[in-house]
Design a protein around this nucleic acid. Structure first.
Lengths: 125, 125
DNA sequence: CCGTATCCGATCCGATACTG
DNA sequence: CAGTATCGGATCGGATACGG
């Protein structure tokens, strides 16, 4: 991923690190605790292993996500949100999720929400 | 901008609409009230008029930004955050701004912050 | 001051194959 | 299960010119 070298404002920095297609979804998946690579892969519809690893690497580079690897077979690693920065970024992502739910609920896309068991009634933005 | 037609989760929707290079910055600039096109153009370092108009159009399409145009010369339009959705998105953007400030403050990029008069001391994420 | 159109290099991302 | 490498089409975004 292309990273700028000269920034003129703080938002450019964060935008650079959140921009990939899957980053917000990965962060959201990690909201309830660490997950292995294969758990993430299975949990994110449509992502390839290559993209997942790539985006995870970038999330680590910025410090949103950390990684624990245990030696021995079978191999096992765990990716998790860092404190406090990763957790704080999740706050922003959670707002986006709410906005997305609201958008889908008001634009005839309730099938996706129903399928995921997301309650979109009695919600307000 | 390419917009997906089939979404599998709400975050994909919002990510699609926040992805452009300048969108978060535009939203942030509008936090204290509406601005004209030229005000935005002058306030955002490095943006071209073409990109600005393009991104503003997309922000309107999703409903984050609204526009008032007054007839007569000189032409004048005002772009502003919609309520409540645009305002809610600004909440997320504001968190990102805070994270960016924190990142710059801890990575030797304080010159940019100083230049903008952003206070980065006594802050926590 | 505001907005549209086109061209073109930079980049992103998906597919695929391969390793420990 | 976890990770790396390469290729190529699809997008993105900057420059530039033109019109209301």
């Amino acid at each position: 991923m292309k990273i700028r070298t000269d920034y003129t404002c703080p938002l450019e920095v964060v935008h650079d690190f959140i921009r990939g297609k899957w980053k917000t979804i990965i962060l959201f998946k990690l909201r309830n605790g660490g997950l292995s690579l294969s758990e993430l892969e299975r949990g994110i519809s449509g992502i390839s292993q290559k993209m997942l690893l790539e985006q995870l690497g970038e999330l680590q580079a910025f410090g949103f996500v950390g990684k624990n690897a245990s030696a021995g077979y079978p191999l096992h690693v765990e990716y998790f949100l860092t404190e406090p920065v990763g957790r704080r970024m999740l706050d922003a992502v959670t707002i986006m999720q709410d906005i997305g739910v609201h958008y889908m609920a008001t634009h005839g896309m309730t099938d996706v929400l129903d399928q995921k068991g997301i309650d979109y009634r009695n919600r307000h933005i």
